[in-house]
């Protein structure tokens, strides 16, 4: 029981990170029907941007931890958003309306480019950050094992919930969200009714990247280390989460993220830590084959 509760907490933390990345996949797929393969690497770039700003603020300007992190969160969202905006502008927008595999291949190229760019400009070695928020709140003790929830775990979950509420509000209540949902249904009709389709799609990419940047901040906060190759596997897992939850659905992405996080930690705790990525990839295959619409997704009608 005590191990289970502890793993539940860890899994939910990890799942929050996956969920935030998954939203980027699900929003982009929803609006232009494309698997943004480079999104995992955008997350990694976001983590690096956060790392550099954090070091800049804490070591050069000597800021305290909490204000530094808050500024880092905002700057990371802005700059990662700019990156994804530029990526969409350069690599995806000219291919809109081209044959359907072109954007996917372009995205694969972008993914290789981003991870190698970081390798070249930041070096191939792991970048550690000093541990932060090491304290934790003990919940209960059973069989001499204390179940505890770390401050950073609390912070991650709280930030995730707050951001979700904000994004939910944007998509459901603002004119931008309305434009997004209109483009999702029919881009041509939306354009005829005066929606700036290009701008809406760009902003969707920026929003997805901003959430990926937050996930990046959490990732370095949680693991204390980041590497140029860290984008691929979390990216695939987050994509799995997006599909599991039902691609195109915002709450689905988070639900899928939490499930994937839980499955991964439970698998590591009860079966084998070596095969945890095998488990994640197997779930991806199983979900895509047997449950392609996901838990909260709408079934797609095949049109001839």
């Amino acid at each position: 029981m005590e191990v289970f509760v502890q793993q539940l907490i860890n899994g939910l933390t990890l799942g929050s990170i996956y969920g935030l990345i998954a939203i980027g996949y699900t929003m982009v797929f929803g609006i232009i029907g494309m698997v943004n393969f480079a999104h995992g690497d955008v997350f990694m770039v976001g983590a690096f941007i956060a790392l550099i700003f954090f070091l800049l603020l804490s070591t050069w300007f000597g800021w305290a931890l909490i204000p530094a992190l808050m500024i880092v969160l905002v700057l990371g969202m802005v700059f990662t958003g700019l990156w994804n905006w530029a990526i969409e502008r350069v690599a995806y927008r000219p291919l809109r309306g081209s044959f359907r595999l072109a954007p996917l291949i372009s995205a694969i190229g972008m993914s290789i480019f981003l991870s190698n760019l970081i390798q070249v400009v930041q070096g191939p070695r792991n970048k550690p950050v000093p541990p932060m928020f090491t304290q934790s709140v003990p919940l209960f003790t059973e069989n001499g094992y204390t179940v505890a929830i770390g401050y950073k775990q609390i912070a991650i979950m709280v930030i995730t919930v707050v951001l979700l509420a904000v994004f939910w509000y944007i998509v459901q209540k603002t004119s931008l969200g309305r434009a997004q949902r209109a483009c999702e249904q029919d881009q041509k009709m939306a354009a005829l009714l005066g929606v700036d389709v290009d701008k809406t799609i760009s902003l969707t990419f920026v929003m997805g990247a901003a959430l990926a940047a937050v996930a990046g901040v959490m990732y370095i906060m949680y693991y204390g280390v980041v590497n140029f190759s860290d984008g691929f596997v979390p990216g695939v897992k987050a994509f799995t989460a997006a599909v599991l939850g039902g691609i195109g659905s915002l709450p689905g992405a988070v639900l899928g993220g939490l499930l994937i996080g839980l499955i991964e930690t439970m698998w590591s705790a009860y079966f084998s830590i070596d095969y945890k990525d095998v488990a994640a990839f197997s779930i991806l295959a199983i979900v895509l084959v047997f449950l392609p619409t996901g838990i909260l997704g709408r079934p797609e009608v095949e049109k001839v």
Binding site: V90, P94, A102, P103, S106, G109, I112, F113, V120
Partner: peptide, 21 residues
């Protein structure tokens, strides 16, 4: 040699932009 995969990724994107087919 450090730059080979960087160039490779970029070439993939540019190729798609130039001649998607």
């Amino acid at each position: 040699t450090q730059y080979r995969m960087l160039i490779f990724g970029l070439a993939m994107v540019l190729m798609m932009l130039w001649k998607p087919r």
